[in-house]
Amino acid sequence: MLIPCVSVGAAGSTVTQKKGENVTLNCPQVQEDESLATTIWYKDDIMKVSMGQSGGTQYTEPSLESKFAVEQDSSLVLMRLDPGDSGNYTCKVFVVNSTGVMDNNSTTWIVLVQDVPSPPGEARIVDTQSRQVKVEWSPSDSDNNSPISNYVVLISECQTGNNKREIVVGESTHQVTITNLEPYTCYQVHVRATNDVGRSLPGPPTSQFYTESESVTAIVDQAGGSCASDTCRDSFLVCEGSVCKYKTGVDCSNGNEHCQSGTACESSSNMICKIQLTEDCSSNPTECGEGLKCDTTSNTCKPTCLGFTLHV
């Protein structure tokens, strides 16, 4: 794999490079009436490598040979940059002028190595409800020389990891409410930070947690449960007087006292909610109770006798 290498020309400037790249830093030029004696490179005022007049290179630490290389023109190549390579690099060139006097010139470079941000702090649960959770976290300790643009909050179900979702918030936001969750379901949350280089590693996740169970006044899936106007879960229920009741024509064998008003659970009809005498049957003309028939004139259930409708 080719590693990008950048050579910088203007002496004494700031150099910004991404992790993994190479960069070449130049030294002061030797004038025509001067002869090069020694070149020394410093990082943060600590000597790292030197090159004598003969071109031999000496490192202060053996491990630096895989990081630094000095070219014949005394320029320094920093290889496979890492955030720890950020710092001030000074090249000091010792020369002998035409009169035989030793002199020196120096140039300092500020090197900034960019990387993804450090992971955010541990994600913490602030508040849990049946269908939402509030999460907070601490910001990343370092943006690694590239400003953080946003935080990405990731939530998924425990163990299976199903239903993964991402919520993106601004760089100054460290708390978010995640909605549209399932009641009494196990979730886990972690957070990543993003800059121009990419996403950080995830910060420490929350402990696994369960959303709250749904309250009886929220979603009701059986007759007899308390309800608001639109919170009976199933299509065979209707909210009547703050109680979910079975609609006409529904099997009521498991709750015969819960048929909606104007109907009754009839054993002769295999425990089905049937419309009773004089009740409106216009929407369900075939659902009148035993011995009743929907009178098309009044649209109410009327008793039948010997095949004739008795008008009462």
Results as ranks from 00 to 15, higher is better:
Tyr184Glu: 08
Asp230Ala: 09
Ser54Met: 11
Ser13Tyr: 01
Ile125Asn: 01
Asp230Glu: 11
Phe308Trp: 10
Glu279Met: 11
Gly241Thr: 15
Ile46Gln: 12
Arg199Cys: 04
Val6Asp: 13
Val93Met: 11
His258Glu: 09
Trp109Arg: 04
Glu166Trp: 09
Val113Lys: 04
Ile3Val: 14
Thr278Asn: 11
Asp143Ser: 13
Asn22Asp: 06
Gly12Ser: 04
Ser130Val: 00
Asp280Tyr: 10
Glu122Pro: 04
Glu171Arg: 08
Thr286Val: 06
Lys247Trp: 01
Glu212Cys: 00
Asp230Thr: 08
Pro147Glu: 14
Val101Trp: 07
Leu25Ser: 12
Lys43Gln: 15
Cys27Asn: 05
Leu76Lys: 02
Ser35Thr: 14
Ser74Val: 07
Lys164Thr: 13
Asp44Val: 09
Met271Gly: 07
Gln222Phe: 00
Thr57Val: 15
Asn22Arg: 08
Ser98Ile: 08
Thr24Ser: 05
Thr108Cys: 00
Ser283Thr: 15
Gly241Met: 15
Trp137Val: 05
Asp127Gln: 14
His311Asp: 11
Leu36Ile: 10
Thr309Gln: 11
Thr90Cys: 01
Gln175Lys: 06
Cys91Pro: 12
Asn163Lys: 11
Phe236Asp: 08
Val8Gly: 05
Lys48Glu: 11
Val126Leu: 03
Val116Asn: 00
Arg131Thr: 01
Ala223Asp: 01
